[in-house]
């Protein structure tokens, strides 16, 4: 059966459906969910996570809208095939944009690469 490694938090300010969405994207990106893999039914996932059906419905709809998954009427929701590479590229593009902005900002105060690297490490540590 389905074994989805999803963690959500009720205390975080990120809406639950966003958390579900992000977790599934993470699983797809990390390869834990491959193209063609079935996602649990909305109702099943809602039950397993102890959240409402509408919340899971919304996460699935968003995922479908972004092309990560597709649903087959009467069968279920599946991880989309062709899109994984595209998605990765899209996220890479997004990261490139952020890096550009970051470098531009650090140039204004003459921040060195070492200092920048150090800052990244510190923030990374804080996040985990």
């Amino acid at each position: 059966m389905f074994k989805l490694n999803i963690k959500i938090s009720n205390t975080m300010d990120v809406p639950i459906y966003e958390q579900v969405k992000d977790e599934i994207i993470r699983l797809i990106m990390s390869g834990e969910l491959g193209p063609g893999d079935a996602l649990p039914s909305m109702r099943r996932l809602a039950k397993d996570l102890g959240i409402s059906i509408i919340t899971t419905k919304r996460a699935y709809q968003d995922l479908e809208g972004a092309g990560y998954v597709h649903s087959i009427v009467g069968k279920g929701t599946y991880v989309s095939e062709q899109n994984t590479e595209l998605q990765k590229e899209r996220i890479l593009n997004e990261i490139e944009g952020h890096i550009e902005a970051m470098l531009l900002a650090s140039r204004q105060i003459n921040l060195s690469r070492e200092e920048l690297d150090e800052m990244i490490s510190i923030i990374e540590e804080d996040m985990t």
């Binding site: 009720n10 809406p15 639950i16 459906y17 102890g50 959240i51 409402s52 059906i53 509408i54 919340t55 919304r58």
Partner: peptide, 22 residues
């Protein structure tokens, strides 16, 4: 908080709101 899809609030015999919980 966790399981409801919709919330209906009633007060003094009137419906105050009926809304998706999220």
């Amino acid at each position: 908080d966790s399981i409801a899809d919709y919330i209906v609030m009633i007060d003094e015999g009137k419906i105050v709101f009926h809304e998706e919980k999220d």
